[in-house]
């Protein structure tokens, strides 16, 4: 009896990525940050910080992450805040949810792009639970918050058992779904510098398929103008999301725009440059084209917004 095609004998492999009941774990709900840090220091890689849980619990159901300990920080009321001081800028605590950020009057007024980015995350139910800090730590290539924070030149306050340090948002992401936090570290706050006069920021995105969906291309632009008469671009930061392994800055486009006149023709060329800087994997042709379209549209909106602010 001939075996027709004998390729190779395969032992059960390629497991189907099935959702499962969550494994047992030990649960702590500290009420102070120092308690949380001490627990982290004790359990190290066996523990995960649990805030909104919208990414973490899915990861645990898929058995992608299997923490033996969850440290629920939601009882640390001191971490739930959104504070603005004209001299210092904006400070967002680790427990601020996407919903609270989207509904914050001060963010709506001064940092609208953060509201736009937050509203793009998941569904309402997800936004009511998920935190911006959690979203950053998840480090998804298609995260909406990261390009916006990059454009805003945000910093993160990181605590560990030794003390605290400030980390630049651009250094924070190591790779897709990987950040630089060590196993005993926790972010307590996002710090966003005050914006110069004659500046504005915008976040635009296109979803993958339906309206409320993962982001296919995300563009965040924060730009400032020298003065209303010469319309010279004093400074611009362009954050791009979902078009490279980690959210990135379109530095070449930024360089081209800075010191130049803020107008249609330069926006067109800057958009063109930005689209060459990214490296999307799937739907690459379409994504590059959309970077171009969205960067141009964002720059135009920023200019309009600055002009209207008089």
């Amino acid at each position: 009896m001939l075996t027709i095609i004998y390729l190779f004998l395969s032992i059960e492999s390629v497991p189907l990525n099935m959702l499962r009941a969550i494994k047992d774990f030990e649960y702590f709900a500290p009420s102070t940050l120092s308690e949380a840090i001490s627990l982290l220091g004790h359990y190290k890689h066996n523990a995960k910080i649990f805030a909104g849980g919208t990414d973490l619990l899915i990861g645990m159901k898929k058995r992608d992450v299997n923490p033996q300990v969850l440290i629920d920080i939601k009882n640390i009321s001191k971490l739930d805040y959104i504070r603005y001081k004209r001299s210092e800028g904006l400070k967002i605590g680790a427990l601020a949810t996407h919903s609270s950020i989207a509904n914050s009057p001060i963010i709506s007024e001064k940092y609208k792009l953060l509201k736009q980015a937050s509203l793009s995350v998941g569904s309402l139910q997800t936004r009511n639970r998920g935190t911006m800090v959690g979203n950053i730590c998840n480090a998804s290539p298609s995260a909406d918050t990261l390009p916006a924070l990059i454009a805003l030149n945000a910093k993160l306050k990181v605590f560990n058992i030794e003390g605290k340090k400030i980390v630049n948002i651009e250094e924070f992401i190591k790779g897709p779904f990987r950040n630089i936090l060590k196993e005993n570290e926790i972010i307590s706050e996002i710090q966003i510098p005050k914006l110069p006069p004659l500046s504005s920021g915008v976040y635009l995105n296109l979803s993958k398929i339906t309206k409320e969906d993962e982001t296919l291309v995300g563009v965040a632009v924060v730009g400032s103008m020298e003065n209303m008469e010469n319309r010279i671009c004093k400074n611009v930061r362009i954050g791009l999301g979902s078009v490279s392994p980690i959210p990135m800055r379109a530095t070449k486009a930024e360089k081209y725009l800075t010191r130049g006149k803020m107008e249609d023709a330069s926006f067109e060329l800057a958009a063109e440059i930005a689209s060459t800087e990214c490296s999307p994997r799937s739907r690459a042709e379409y994504r590059r084209e959309m970077v171009k379209i969205l960067v141009k549209r964002s720059l135009t909106l920023v200019l309009d917004s600055i002009l209207c602010s008089r």
């Binding site: 649990f50 849980g53 969850l70 629920d72 139910q125 997800t126 009511n128």
Partner: peptide, 13 residues
Amino acid sequence: GVPVNSCLVLAIE
């Protein structure tokens, strides 16, 4: 009063 997906909330919280 806040709507959430109960499949992504631990009872203990």
